[in-house]
Structure formats: structure tokens, C-alpha cells
């Protein structure tokens, strides 16, 4: 036991890496066992699954990361989903009309995402309405705009020249790595990241120390907009088209991507938020793909939804109570000590 603890102390990095890798690996293993035993299929059945996994991974990774930009600072931006729609539909179609291909779609969507995000940020720092409430209003407006744009057709990527690259595995890996590098830099090593962390701790102190919290918030929103736009493009590449929604339905994208974010932030305690969220997204994607295999034995997508969200619930129960176990242990030790002291005193008194 002590040897093991000693080893753990010595190889912190190794242990942290193992922890980070272990979670998605465990999810995969569990799904693989379940899938193979019930349907005879593997979770990763063919190259198609790998492509799907990677595309969905980069999509959910970017979206969760985008959410985290603001969420970590106590700003739950309910409009990120509508920013995604706006950015992809306006930017993507602009790129397509200029015949810029997949890369163009990606770049233009990102740019539009930054504009969309920055506008929300601008309103936020000026109106100072609670982010969640602001998000509600913004999503109404953004949804309306993205719906009316492009003749209500949304963004259609299937069969468009040059968009095949968005399904190219190497390209996807490249983009994922690039985003990881950029975001790690932004979050962890850049002046922006340092300031952001300070604001995350205490915005008043940060403000008093001369950090411009307003510019920082604006940048956070801008980065979030860019990230969800990337997420939207890859999602569209998978689903072929992005159909505009109304009635605050874009919120559901936000909510469903909170799962990878929650897992990611939990994993992040042993690494950093970027790697954590990647591992978190990977875990969730394994779960979704694994569940999809049950379609073969007649499980409806409602059932799959049920299971996916139940897993989320169980995870949250664990996450919010993991420290309780230690607490109970400590408490037991303390009670024992108290009993001993009491006995000792009684002995002395006697």
C-alpha cells in the first residue's frame, strides 16, 4: 500500500496521464463488452465508425470547449447554439458562394462565429444582463436571422465541391490538434489566459489590479463563437446539412454538449481543461456510438437517449459526492480519536 502511494507520488505525470486516458478507455471497454455480447458487433465496427467518431469528436470537443470559455467564469451562455447556427449558415454559404471549398467554409464560419460571439459579448458588457437571460433573448434574435438567411435553406454541404476534406481523417486530426494547441496556448500560456484565470477566481480583485475584465469577457465570447462555429461545420459535414431552428430549439445543442464538458472538467483536475474536455468528449462519443449499435437489436433512439442521460445523471451524482467518501472516512477516524480521548480522560479522572 505505502509502496503504491510512494510510486504514485513519484510519477505524478504518469498517473495523471493514466487517469485521463483511463476514463474514455473504460467507457470504450464497457461499451465493447456490452455491444459484442448482445449484438455481436464491435463498438468501432469499421472505418466508417472511426470517421464518424472523429468528426463528432472534434465537433463536440469544440462545442464543449466553447461553452467552457464562459461557463468557467460563471457565465452560462444559452445563446451559443444560436451563434453556431448563425455562423455556419451565414459564413458557410458565403464561402460556398465564393467557391472556397471545405476550408473556406470552416474559416468563414469561424470568422462569422467570432463576429456573432463578439456581438453577444459586446451586449453583455454594456447591458450587464445576466448571461443566461441575455442568452435567451439573443437566441431568439439569432435564430430568427439564421432562419431568414439563405432563403430558409440553412447550410447544405453535401455534394458541394471541395467539402470532402471535412470528412478527411487526416484533416480532422490536424484541425483537432491545431485547436488543442491554440486553445491550450490561449487558456494556459497567453496573457489572455492568465487574466482569464484571475477573473475566474475573483473578478473584482482582477479588476482592481488593472485587468480589463470587459475586454477579457469580450474575447471569451469571441473565442466561444469561433469554437462553436467549428463545431457546427463538422456537425454539418456529418449530417450533410444544417437546418435552421426556431423557438429556442438551438438551446438543446448547448444542453447536450454540457455532458462532455462536465466530464471534461472533472478529468481536467488531473491535466488541463483542454485535454480534459477532449478526453471527456471522447468518452461521451464512445458511449453514443456504442449505444447506437443497440439499434441492431431494436433499441429505439428514445431508449438510447434515456440511457445516455441516465449515465450523465449517475456521473453527476458521483462527481458531486466523490468527496463525501473521504469525509466519511475522516469522520470515522475523528470519532475514534474522540472516543479514545474520552476514555483516557475517564481513566485519569478515576
Amino acid at each position: 500500500m505505502s509502496k503504491w502511494q510512494d510510486f504514485r507520488r513519484k510519477h505524478v505525470l504518469l498517473m495523471n496521464t493514466l487517469f485521463t486516458v483511463a476514463v474514455p478507455l473504460t467507457v470504450w471497454l464497457v461499451m465493447e463488452l456490452l455491444d459484442y455480447s448482445t449484438t455481436g458487433l464491435h463498438t468501432m465496427n469499421s472505418m466508417v465508425d472511426w470517421t464518424t467518431l472523429m468528426r463528432n469528436l472534434v465537433s463536440s470537443f469544440c462545442f464543449a470547449l466553447g461553452l467552457n470559455c464562459n461557463m468557467a467564469l460563471g457565465r452560462m451562455d444559452t445563446s451559443t447554439g444560436s451563434q453556431m447556427f448563425l455562423a455556419c449558415i451565414l459564413g458557410g454559404n458565403l464561402a460556398l458562394s465564393l467557391n472556397l471549398g471545405g476550408v473556406g467554409v470552416l474559416v468563414f464560419s469561424m470568422l462569422l462565429g467570432m463576429v456573432a460571439g463578439a456581438f453577444v459579448g459586446f451586449l453583455f458588457i454594456n447591458l450587464r444582463i445576466l448571461p443566461m437571460v441575455l442568452g435567451l433573448g439573443i437566441s431568439l434574435v439569432y435564430e430568427c436571422i439564421s432562419f431568414s438567411a439563405n432563403n430558409q435553406q440553412g447550410l447544405n454541404l453535401f455534394g458541394k465541391p471541395g467539402v470532402g476534406i471535412l470528412s478527411n481523417r487526416l484533416f480532422i486530426i490536424g484541425i483537432t490538434v491545431l485547436i488543442m494547441l491554440v486553445m491550450t496556448y490561449l487558456f494556459q500560456y497567453s496573457p489572455f489566459g492568465y487574466k482569464r484565470r484571475a477573473i475566474q477566481g475573483n473578478q473584482k480583485l482582477a479588476n482592481d489590479a488593472g485587468i480589463n475584465i470587459y475586454v477579457n469577457a469580450l474575447l471569451c465570447y469571441t473565442a466561444a463563437g469561433a469554437l462553436v462555429a467549428v463545431a457546427g461545420v463538422f456537425d454539418t459535414a456529418y449530417k450533410s446539412n444544417l437546418v435552421p431552428v426556431l423557438g429556442m430549439n438551438s438551446n438543446s445543442t448547448v444542453f447536450s454538449n454540457m455532458f462532455p464538458m462536465a466530464v471534461g472538467l472533472w478529468l481536467a483536475k488531473k491535466s488541463n481543461p483542454v485535454i480534459g474536455i477532449l478526453a471527456g468528449s471522447l468518452s461521451v462519443q464512445f458511449l453514443v456510438l456504442g449505444l447506437a449499435k443497440f439499434t441492431n437489436i431494436g433499441m429505439s433512439d428514445y431508449m438510447q437517449t434515456c440511457i445516455k442521460y441516465s449515465v450523465w445523471l449517475v456521473f453527476m451524482i458521483y462527481r458531486m459526492n466523490e468527496d463525501k467518501i473521504q469525509l466519511i472516512k475522516d469522520k470515522r477516524a475523528r470519532v475514534a480519536l474522540a472516543k479514545a480521548t474520552r476514555a483516557q480522560r475517564a481513566a485519569v479522572a478515576a
Partner: peptide, 14 residues
């Protein structure tokens, strides 16, 4: 629903 397309994919892959 985000489970719909993976379901199709999974079936076709059989």
C-alpha cells in the same frame, strides 16, 4: 436527435 444518424450508420454497417 443526435442518436438518429449513428443508428442508421450502425444498421447500414452490418
Amino acid at each position: 436527435k443526435d442518436t438518429w444518424l449513428p443508428g442508421i450508420s450502425s444498421l447500414l454497417q452490418s
